[in-house]
């Protein structure tokens, strides 16, 4: 292996200087590529896998969104039919309303709750306890996601569920509902899963941002009498906007594309009350074998999620980097 050293472009300092000198004229020449064969050889298995299994499927999806596509049958081009079908489908407005509800809630649960938790931990003075809390917030993540959802399904059980047990014990019999089985409530019951939504990853990301704020900023603020909640509003929030932006994007993509919890808890029911486009995509592919239609819905969701990402990227502008360490 080491015999290849002489051809490696970054091997010796002199080689690198030579390469730099030649760069303006020959950086993209055949010779330059040949000198770097080792880098390309090392990257080739990565790109081979990426091209077949990562680049190809979404491109195929973009194309097949305009086709009628079933396993074992040649695909036929149908133009915009799949999109027209989806937008004229009677349940579609309902699905979009559900997505908006999930989005509003997702932004609150994904951005605000972790921020509150991070600030609380950040205000703790004892370093040992701070470290302990940092570890404790990730405990809910030790339970697999599917188990959390299945557990909540048991908590919501109208007859054997602890939530209704508790309501009955408090004499609130009339509020002991079939949480996942009622049209009006089911979507909110799905949102409530994971209460109080103190999400470990979000909290730790915020703590990272808060930890990078320079101590001199806080000292100056304290001299001006800016402490406690005032400091949070005027200093901490503007300085963690980079983290807010990241979590906002994650929350938007999640709210628009995720349907795993709904699939497990209600499968879109009762009736169509908790249907979302992602679940329709899933059903039309794996129950109705309409893969072209399904790809079209996937493409729509991609466009919505991408637009949301771009809006957030433009809309949230992080404060001056100089105030960080």
């Amino acid at each position: 292996m080491s015999s290849a050293q002489s051809t490696q472009t970054d091997s010796a300092p002199s080689g690198r200087i030579l390469w730099r000198r030649m760069r303006p004229t020959t950086s993209l020449s055949w010779r330059a590529f040949r000198r770097s064969w080792q880098a390309y050889a090392l990257l080739s298995p990565i790109f081979a896998l990426l091209i077949v299994f990562v680049y190809y499927p979404p491109i195929l999806g973009l194309i097949r969104a305009f086709f009628r596509w079933r396993p074992g049958v040649p695909a036929t081009f149908v133009g915009l039919d799949n999109f027209v079908t989806y937008f004229t489908y009677a349940e579609t407005p309902h699905e979009l309303v559900n997505i908006v509800k999930l989005l509003v809630f997702g932004l609150f649960a994904g951005i605000v709750m972790p921020f509150i938790m991070a600030e609380l931990i950040f205000f703790v003075r004892s370093p040992a306890l701070k470290e302990l809390y940092r570890l404790l917030v990730i405990i809910p993540m030790l339970v697999p996601g599917i188990v959390t959802v299945l557990l909540w399904q048991k908590l919501y059980d109208p007859y054997l569920g602890p939530i209704n047990d508790m309501l009955r014990a408090m004499g609130l019999e009339q509020f002991a509902l079939n949480w996942l089985g009622e049209h009006r409530i089911a979507i909110y019951a799905i949102m409530f899963v994971g209460f109080p939504w103190v999400w470990g990853v979000g909290t730790l990301i915020y703590l990272g941002g808060l930890g990078q704020i320079s101590e001199s900023v806080y000292e100056a603020a304290a001299l001006d009498g800016c402490t406690g909640v005032g400091r949070v509003m005027r200093i901490d929030i503007p300085l963690v906007l980079g983290q807010v932006r990241l979590l906002a994007i994650l929350a938007i993509i999640n709210a628009i594309t995720a349907f795993q919890n709904i699939l497990v808890l209600t499968d879109g029911g009762p009736g169509f009350s908790t249907m979302v486009p992602g679940l329709t995509m899933f059903h039309s592919a794996f129950r109705a074998q309409k893969f072209g239609y399904s790809s079209a819905i996937g493409l729509l969701l991609f466009i919505i999620a991408m637009s949301g990402t771009l809006i957030i990227n433009r809309g949230i502008r992080p404060a001056n980097e100089e105030l960080r360490q």
Binding site: T9, A32, S36, L43, L50, T257, A285, L301
Partner: peptide
């Protein structure tokens, strides 16, 4: 390592982080 097209190749990989799974699932 230094080699031609290093940055374009790198961004060709990183850009994939932005493709939501929903587009490629089906």
């Amino acid at each position: 390592m230094r080699f031609p097209l290093r940055e374009p190749l790198y961004y060709a990989i990183i850009a994939l982080l932005m493709v939501p799974w929903v587009l490629s699932f089906i």
